[in-house]
């Protein structure tokens, strides 16, 4: 998750801000966080600090939207995540790159952050948690559609993950992925049953 090294947060509640910072720290060590205190200075700060991700609580955003922020700061690559403290903001959250809510579990937030990262230039060879999860479903014989449904992802995202998995491991067949998954103890033989016999 190279892309999440620098995060900018717009959240007026100290309690929520501290909670988000703590959780991001658990997802990845070494994350740098900048807090925006004054919403009128948001765009100026984005230009100055050059964050990778912007967490914005729409309630504190003073009418700022991701498209406006990206356009005026000339940062089309800036990832904007809606930080929802309140269900009433759900309708505006749709235009963000991702949404996290104060009732999300740690795992949900971690997975959402990982889903945002694959387009990046990261060169890490080890599989992420999410990718390992997808490997186990693939070797159990699930289709992309079934995996997408299980993980609440789009099929497109599943395909992207699978492509990244193949290029990280340099394994392009499902039989090869199965050997990898068994050898790395991601699944046991009985989990995959006769899933690939004779195939």
């Amino acid at each position: 998750m190279k892309r999440f090294l620098k995060c900018m947060i717009v959240e007026s509640s100290d309690l929520l801000y501290a909670g988000l910072v703590a959780m991001l720290g658990q997802i990845r060590a070494g994350i740098q966080v900048v807090r925006v205190q004054d919403i009128s200075r948001l765009k100026e700060q984005v230009k100055q600090e050059h964050p990778d991700v912007l967490f914005l609580n729409p309630l504190c955003g003073g009418g700022e939207t991701p498209s406006k922020i990206k356009a005026t700061t000339d940062r089309p690559d800036l990832l904007c995540v809606a930080f929802l403290s309140d269900l009433s903001s759900l309708s505006v959250a749709a235009e963000y790159d991702a949404q996290i809510g104060i009732y999300d579990s740690f795992e949900q937030i971690r997975d959402k952050m990982e889903d945002l990262s694959p387009k990046g230039e990261e060169e890490e060879k080890a599989l992420s948690q999410r990718e390992k999860e997808i490997v186990t479903y693939v070797v159990k014989g699930l289709t992309n559609k079934q995996i997408a449904d299980k993980l609440f992802l789009s099929q497109h995202t599943v395909v992207t993950h699978r492509r990244n998995i193949a290029s990280k491991l340099n394994i392009h067949s499902s039989a090869g992925l199965t050997v990898y998954a068994i050898a790395s103890k991601l699944v046991r033989l009985e989990d995959i049953g006769g899933g690939m016999k004779g195939a």
């Binding site: 067949s173 050997v179 016999k197």
Partner: peptide, 8 residues
């Protein structure tokens, strides 16, 4: 592992 390697 040996089972899946042989299957492969």
């Amino acid at each position: 592992v040996s089972v899946v390697v042989l299957r492969f």
